[in-house]
Every structure is written in structure tokens, then in C-alpha cells.
């Protein structure tokens, strides 16, 4: 069953069409990657789904219910929670209190919320920083805090907006592991990511946007061979050259 259905979502800012009639489904329990060059409309799409923007057209269904145009907190309460690309720590509160705010959506009981918050801190490797003021963390720490906070709400659908950008290789490996573990527990995850090593190995499906339009939707193995995608990333000139080189190499028999 599709947990999230996006039908023809369009988002216009004046004359600028940031998302143009985008449709796709996210299956329950899947990891779906959302990639595309800068300015492709990935974050705008996330903002539409999470209620920060009201789409100019189209419908969004979550768990079979229409959520188009609902307030962000209403959508979060239904179980679709997102992180922010530009990190937004609650900067005068401690790391623990940040995560606790998320955990209070999971349960309003202090004891249960506290336990949930500890669990998520451990999971995101922030336990030793829990009494630090969130504004004083490094960028890597803030990214992990974004994730821990969203996780603490115990979402059905977790939308991660570039949580791996700026992380070291080790940190990135750790977050990939965390994401996989979450999927094993049945959580559905959507990821916007530029770091391909982070997303390609774990995604069940990758959606590619370019200039506000969906240009591909497939399993990762096919996406990397998709010509439109290569063109979007490299530009027409270079993708042509790249293709010619590939042909040459196949002819020469040196590469396959």
C-alpha cells in the first residue's frame, strides 16, 4: 500500500514554477530517494508535503487521507515528520530538550517521552552532548540533532532533507546504518540527498527532479544509467561527450 501519494503537485511562486505537476507514490516500508541538481524543487516539494507551503495545484494523500493544505503541525500529528536542510535547532534549549519536544508528540507522559528522547539520542550518537546548548553544536551535530528530533516523534513517514551533507565519511556511514535500521523497524523514509554514496546503496526507489519536473523514477541501478538523469547532472554537452567516450571505450574493448 502506498503510504504517501502525490498527485500532480504544482507549486508556483509568482511566475516561477518550482514544482510542475509532480506525481509519485511512496510504498509503506520503503526508502525513497529524491535527487536532482540544485534548484530542482526537491525542498519545495518537501515543504508542500509537510504543509509549510500550500501547493498551488494537485493533491497529497497520506495513509489514504488527503493532507493537501493542512497546517504543518496537523500533518506532523498524522505521522509525517520532516527535517530541515538548513538546520533549525531550538538554539537556546539543550540537545536533550530539543529531542524531548519531538518526543512529546509520541507521548505526553513525561516518563515515556523522556525514555523515547534518550533512545533517539543514543541512536543518533548524541548522548554525550545531551546537556549542551543546541546552538553550540557543530554542523554535523546539528544535522544529527535534526534527525534525532524528528525520530523522537515516532513518525510513520520520515522525510530527511540532506541530513548527510557536511558529514565526515564515518559519520555518514553511521547515519546510513541508522536509516537502514529504521527501515527494518518498518518506518517509511524519504531522503533528499546529494551524497550519492549515501543514498544509492540503500534506496528502494529513486525519484529524480530537474527544473521542477520529475524526469525519472526507478530503482537506483537503472537511475544511474538513465540518460535524462545523466544529462540533468552533467549538462547536454558533457553528457554527449560522456556517451561518445563510452561508445569509444566499448569499441576499443578496454572498458565495458
Amino acid at each position: 500500500m502506498a503510504i504517501l501519494e502525490v498527485h500532480n503537485v504544482t507549486m508556483k511562486f509568482g511566475e516561477l514554477v518550482a514544482c510542475n505537476s509532480i506525481s509519485f507514490n511512496v510504498e509503506e516500508g520503503a526508502i525513497v530517494g529524491l535527487i536532482g541538481p540544485n534548484g530542482a524543487g526537491k525542498t519545495t516539494l518537501f515543504n508542500c508535503i509537510s504543509g509549510l507551503y500550500k501547493p498551488s495545484g494537485g493533491n497529497i494523500f497520506f495513509n489514504g487521507e488527503e493532507i493537501t493544505g493542512l497546517k504543518p503541525y496537523e500533518i506532523a500529528r498524522k505521522g509525517a515528520v520532516r527535517t530541515f536542510q538548513v538546520v533549525r535547532p531550538l538554539k537556546d534549549m539543550t540537545v536533550f530538550d530539543n529531542v524531548l519536544v519531538g518526543a512529546f508528540l509520541y507521548s505526553r507522559e513525561n516518563r515515556i517521552a523522556f525514555e523515547k528522547a534518550y533512545e533517539c539520542l543514543r541512536l543518533c550518537n548524541l548522548e554525550h552532548l545531551k546537556d549542551k546548548i543546541a546552538g553550540e553544536l557543530t554542523i554535523g551535530g546539528k544535522k544529527r540533532l535534526e534527525m534525532a528530533r524528528a525520530l523522537a516523534t515516532n513518525p510513520k513517514l520520515l522525510m530527511l532533507d540532506e541530513v548527510m551533507a557536511g558529514l565526515t565519511t564515518t559519520e555518514m556511514k553511521a547515519s546510513v546504518e541508522v536509516i537502514q535500521r529504521l527501515r527494518d523497524h518498518g518506518m517509511t523514509i524519504m531522503i533528499i540527498e546529494h551524497v550519492m554514496e549515501g543514498i544509492m546503496p540503500i534506496a528502494d526507489k529513486v525519484i529524480v527532479l530537474d527544473g521542477g519536473v520529475k524526469i525519472a523514477e526507478d530503482v537506483p541501478a537503472s537511475i544511474v544509467k538513465n540518460e535524462k538523469v545523466i544529462e540533468a547532472y552533467l549538462g547536454t554537452k558533457y553528457s554527449k561527450r560522456y556517451r561518445e567516450k563510452k561508445v569509444e571505450r566499448t569499441d576499443g574493448g578496454a572498458y565495458t
Binding site: 509549510l52 504543518p72 515528520v81 530541515f84 531550538l90 537556546d92 534549549m93 530538550d97 519536544v101 512529546f104
Partner: peptide, 17 residues
Amino acid sequence: YYMRAVRDGQETAESLG
């Protein structure tokens, strides 16, 4: 906690329900 979350970032707080 919710009051302080609203103070420190209204949009963030809303995104957490």
C-alpha cells in the same frame, strides 16, 4: 517545553506537531 520550542523556532515547533 512547547512554549520554549515556540520561542526558539515557531516553524520548527510546528514541524514537530
